[in-house]
Write a protein that binds this DNA or RNA. Structure first.
Lengths: 231, 231
DNA sequence: ATCTATTTTTAGATTTGTCTAAATTTAATT
DNA sequence: AATTAAATTTAGACAAATCTAAAAATAGAT
């Protein structure tokens, strides 16, 4: 192997496992220099803290995280960029699965978890183009641009909307299969306009109007729906 | 882990490495009960014979190959079916890359080598549908059906065509990047009609007519182009 | 039929990513 | 400040997939 390839191997080629750790650390908030504990990572990834420690050392040596023993890890700038590129791939593949292959939004995650590790810059650029540069994935999560920029949305949780305000449903906070299936069953979909009619003090449930119909939803549901407020 | 999953793990979940071995054995001809030597597999996969021996034992335990020490391996029926499903995935992804993402035929192999290992039956069925059930990949190789059937074509090598016969170019035997680039440069593409005008005894080169133009091609080129003969 | 060259396998080591159990450090409480 | 509970790391082990070097089996040639 040439010197050049040794360089590439050490600094750019990432294993699937390394990529999964970076993604998890990012999602746990370790991008803002916040330090994430090994325990938190282990719990999220359903692995053991000792395994996380090992990987933390490895990622630290590669310059992808800052790691201080007993203090946890945070992503470096390179680490954030790398995490964003994996998240970009994951979300673009999710859009592909829904738009081109008729997957439902509760089916895409598992397959995208595999597809996100495919290595080909051209593949992802062309996929982006085929999908006409989508800004959000099927759950409403923003798709980072090629150079790692997010467009943050002016959105809030439905549970935080004042009475009589209304907005468009733009995303879900919880994208677990049961929650998504629940939304389907109740005909709650992204794009729907929702108006908050009333709040019940007792259990924080909401009475809402959606597509002309009235319904009652629990606080737990409302706290997992993002709404873009119509001013 | 439940008993059911133990069963699934042992008999159906294949590692990437196992899948690559099965594919190689199939391509070396080990599907017709022919026994393939460990050396041949090692050479093809650029690995060591001792590694092949280890994997042969593993695949044999899983019932995917028949393995006799010092005699080589051949695929069982299950092994053939599994190999075909991987080849099916590889070739469908190649078609996708060319038809939907504008890849050239010399760029697809490397990416398809990764994509072929994605596990999702629905994904591949839907991809097949999106591509309108293609029968051949961009190099003219047949795509096995879902139930593992090939449609063999009535094709022969251009080098074996008699003088004055003509046919349509339907595939390449060698699908290496240099050969494909050479064909592009010389405007030789699948679908072109080729007529054999003359053969040179000295070096076995051919004088051909293609799209009205005459050209001379070496034996090595002609021996790597499949032609469907017009009767 | 024996010998020899080649092929193939075995044995033991390595790397990656994981685990368990024990040891260490930190943080909370008195 | 000392003690203790919780979090974290270390040490040692394991499985998968590979390698090298040595041993064993096969096949070809005399």
């Amino acid at each position: 192997m040439s010197n050049k390839n040794v360089f590439l191997k050490k600094y750019f080629l990432m294993t699937r496992s390394e990529e999964n750790y970076l993604k998890t650390i990012f999602h746990l908030g370790g991008g803002d220099a916040k330090s994430i504990t090994t325990n938190a990572i282990a719990e999220q990834m359903e692995t053991k803290p000792s395994s996380v420690t090992d990987m933390a050392k490895k990622l630290s040596e590669k310059g992808l995280v800052d790691y201080v023993r007993y203090q946890g890890v945070s992503l470096t700038d390179v680490g954030v960029k790398t995490a964003l590129s994996i998240i970009r791939k994951h979300r673009l593949w999710e859009v592909f699965l829904v738009k081109k292959l008729d997957f439902t939004w509760d089916e895409v995650h598992e397959v995208a978890e595999q597809l996100e590790h495919i290595k080909s810059e051209k593949l992802i650029d062309k996929l982006d183009e085929l999908l006409e540069f989508p800004k959000h994935d099927p759950h409403g999560d923003p798709i980072p641009t090629k150079d790692g920029k997010f467009q943050e949305r002016d959105e809030k949780l439905l549970s935080e909307m004042p009475i009589n305000s209304q907005g468009v449903c733009v995303g879900v906070k919880d994208s677990s299969v049961p929650f998504l299936k629940f939304l389907d069953k109740n005909k709650i979909a992204l794009g729907n306009t929702i108006k908050v009619l009333d709040k019940e003090d007792f259990d924080n449930s909401l009475r809402i109007q959606m597509d002309g119909k009235e319904m009652r939803i629990s606080h737990q549901i409302a706290a997992n729906l993002y709404v873009k407020k119509n001013d």
